[in-house]
């Protein structure tokens, strides 16, 4: 286990380094026009443009930039933002945002897990009955309707009918978080319900369930102690990653409700050619993803003792 963990960690470091190097090189392929606003593109002379790019170190040979970048990483120096918040350290730019995304994301995850799993159980118990059909309609609706349309419906209903704030506000965090959390939860509730139902229905066809019935266990006992527990095994694997990735926020929801989170940051940074911010975010997200998968493996092992993590073989 320890050997496996160390090996996975080393692999992870290499993966992160590769990912961030690829992004670093891809960014250098983009036109530097992105570095400037439309007005600046028009009004800056070529000399001014070059001077601005030079000040940002973007005119140096790519190899030189890459070596400098690796050196900075070794010193945990992620540089300063040049276009998102000019002159501010990248860590400060990111640090002020991830707490908001994580808070909303975790609340949404908790709601989605509880409601989604309950809905999935109910759909399984009442398979082919009204509740099952309603659950299916909800799932299909959420997946079929474009997210922005369903968010608009939530916004109009929430603000006009329920009188909730339409935009997130740091001065009124509780009420103004309701609509973003609702939108974040909409799709994931459907997702958890869908997979819970599917895995539980699968489990219901297994021989051990027939045996349990023959042994005289009641339906509730079978459902909770056997079916649900086994159905959850493939799902728990993704929970740590889902929790960690809440830090990344949601581009659409955060943009829609003006949540000052991480969601739009990566696209904004790419659009504005803020290379330091992009590189740091990519590294951060890659690390989160890898750690999430690793934790998922361990959690799955804990839930199902038949699974072991070894260098060769095992469940994964």
């Amino acid at each position: 286990m320890i050997k496996y963990t160390i090996k996975r960690l080393l692999q992870s470091l290499i993966t992160i380094l590769l990912a961030v190097t690829i992004v670093f090189l891809l960014l250098r392929l983009l036109p530097t026009d992105y570095y400037f606003t439309e007005d600046q593109l028009m009004k800056f002379t070529t000399e001014q443009k070059n001077a601005a790019l030079e000040a940002a170190g973007l005119l140096d040979p790519v190899g030189e930039q890459l070596v400098r970048f690796y050196g900075q990483i070794l010193h945990l120096d992620f540089g300063i933002s040049r276009r998102i918040q000019s002159g501010i350290a990248v860590t400060q730019v990111i640090g002020s945002k991830f707490e908001v995304s994580m808070r909303l994301g975790l609340i949404s995850l908790a709601i989605s897990l509880v409601l989604g799993v309950i809905l999935g159980i109910l759909q399984t118990v009442f398979k082919d009955k009204l509740i099952d059909h309603l659950g299916t309609v909800y799932t299909v609706f959420v997946n079929a309707v474009p997210a922005l349309v369903s968010y608009s419906l939530v916004l109009v209903f929430g603000s006009k009918v329920l009188g909730l704030p339409a935009l997130y506000s740091t001065r009124n965090v509780g009420p103004s978080s309701i609509l973003p959390v609702a939108c974040l939860s909409l799709a994931s509730i459907a997702g958890y319900a869908l997979w819970t139902r599917r895995y539980m229905v699968d489990e219901l066809t297994r021989d051990y369930i027939k045996l349990a019935k023959v042994k005289g266990l009641n339906t509730r006992e079978i459902m909770i102690s056997h079916v649900l527990r086994n159905a959850m095994v493939p799902m728990v694997q993704y929970i740590p990653a889902s929790m960690l990735l809440t830090i990344g926020g949601s581009l659409l929801v955060e943009r829609f409700f003006s949540v000052p989170g991480m969601g739009p940051l990566l696209t904004d940074a790419i659009n504005r050619y803020d290379v330091n911010v992009v590189q740091t975010l990519v590294m951060f997200y890659a690390a989160l993803g890898i750690v999430g998968v690793f934790l998922g493996d361990i959690l799955m092992m804990l839930v199902d003792p038949r699974i072991t993590l070894t260098e060769k073989g095992g469940a994964r």
Binding site: I88, K97, Y168, S169, T170, R171, E254, P260, D268
Partner: peptide
Amino acid sequence: GLDNTTMWYTGPYVVNEYIQNN
């Protein structure tokens, strides 16, 4: 790298709260 808390003001207002993208 000034921000709203470190800059000095002469104008009609000061910005006492700034939440980027909000």
